[in-house]
Design a protein around this nucleic acid. Structure first.
Lengths: 116, 116
DNA sequence: GCGTACTATTCCGCCTCCGAAACGAAAAGG
DNA sequence: CCTTTTCGTTTCGGAGGCGGAATAGTACGC
């Protein structure tokens, strides 16, 4: 029972949710930041800079910069890996979890009101 | 028969599609640009700078700049309104229609493969 | 130990975006 | 007419993202 969605519905859903993000004004995450945030909160840890860079197909400095920005906003946190102190483990935060949860609820709500 | 979607599915869908956009590398539209593009292609014309600014809750220069960028990429076009020459009407393009169509297909495909 | 490999970060110049204000063109209203 | 209003655009200084090279710190084979 996969999720059934017609192209017109899919596009309207994408439009509606993105509009909500724009009108919110608070966050304005880039596509990269959004992907990193959702990866950290959806996939099982540990998450490293290198792993994220490989997954997204971008350079490591790009990941570091994105983590800097999101870290200042309290959406993610960083900690040294004590087993291998070269690594940095990206950690979840309460604020980040709440933000992601809110996004999920918004998408569900927008999907519910799509024309059939 | 609305579209049924659980929060975890919604977030995974958002993650997967955004990841595709990041890995594509070509386009990297901002959230504002994405919203403008989808508005122009989903909602009936005419579309004006002022109308888009009001809808998105941003200033008019922000819309002008976004249209500049997307215009250079051939995703939208601009034309003077001959009835009221103060207005600028935002027009669709073939390239833009193809891009939007591709996005819709991608979302549908990603939704189809979500875990139940 | 010492060089090598690997981690993440910092630095550099470049480019795009931002909001606010000023601007020119065109319509509306006296 | 001519003033006012309404468009969209341009300009300004500032903030932040970008890619890529260079850097500092850590692990590991020899």
């Amino acid at each position: 029972m996969p999720v059934e969605l017609r192209p017109s519905q899919a596009l309207k859903l994408w439009h509606d949710v993105t509009l909500d993000l724009v009108r919110d004004g608070e966050t304005d995450l880039t596509a990269r930041q959004m992907t990193i945030l959702l990866t950290v909160y959806l996939e099982p840890p540990p998450h490293t800079v290198r792993g994220l860079a490989t997954k997204l197909g971008v350079t490591k400095p790009a990941i570091t910069r994105a983590l800097d920005t999101m870290g200042e906003r309290g959406l993610v946190d960083r900690r040294r890996d004590e087993r291998d102190r070269r690594n940095v483990l990206i950690q979840r935060t309460v604020a980040g979890a709440l933000w992601v949860e809110k996004l999920g609820d918004d998408i569900v709500l927008r999907a519910k009101h799509l024309p059939r």
